[in-house]
Amino acid sequence: MAVPLGAFIAVSAVLFFIGTAGVLVRRNAVVILMSVELMLNATNLALVAFSRRFASIDERGSVFVVFIFVVAAAEVAVGLAIILSAYRNRPTVDVDEIRQMKG
């Protein structure tokens, strides 16, 4: 039997949920960034699943996914740049310790 759409959505949702948990729970900034990538992947999966199921003429969902790739790549680059430059100030990437924005 073919895989029902709901299954893909379920996987996407669970993956998204895992990614969120990672963002909220881990201390290391790089790991947080990784978790964000997981969330993005989850959305990509959902988009492609819907796109393939409901619209095959122009595949707009997939087009959107392509653009998400672009943005995710850019975001990782800039995010890491920020992390590195913060690391230069104090040799830590622990988000609980970086509190300069307090108040």
């Binding site: 969120t20 963002v23 909220l24 988000v95 609980d96 970086i98 509190r99 300069q100 924005m101 307090k102 108040g103």
Partner: peptide
């Protein structure tokens, strides 16, 4: 209300969630 500004980024993410 200022006490909401903890400076900890994780807290802000939690607020978004």
């Amino acid at each position: 209300l200022r006490r909401a500004q903890t400076g900890i980024v994780g807290n802000y993410a939690l607020t978004i969630v």
